[in-house]
Amino acid sequence: MSNQHFYDTLRRSYATSVPHVGELGIELTRIDGEAAEARLPCKPEFLGDVERQLIHTGVITTLIDSICGIALLAHIGKPTRIATLDLRVDYLRPSRPGKDLVCRAECYRLTEQIAFLRATVWQDDPAAPVASCLAAFMRTGRPGETSARSGLQ
């Protein structure tokens, strides 16, 4: 399977095999071996603070976790079982409804078993991020194994 073919497969199967992503409305805008990017149009139900009109940070975390997973699969370049080990998110600025959230994630170190990723989320300006994240993932499949259990085929 060529890399491009695999990226297309990932893109196609993403919304259907990850029901919550379809539910939220996350749209993949870029996927290749270097990075994955996605856009999430905000909905009124994403608010975490009605009085101040702020988006709930949990929405941002969910977006980050999803796009890190996609970025990692694309970086590996073939179907693989992966699992998030941990992630840490810093909420740098409040995020406002009425503007999309954009997330970019990249794998900056990949070993046989572990992958390290970073992600950034912004609204208008990539230089003024609302959140940044570091995450570690595990490649849970045994070496050489490709499995349907990755959920993305």
Binding site: V18, P19, A148, R149, S150, G151
Partner: peptide
């Protein structure tokens, strides 16, 4: 709607 991996 909370499912993230339909295969598991």
């Amino acid at each position: 709607s909370l499912i993230g991996n339909s295969a598991l």
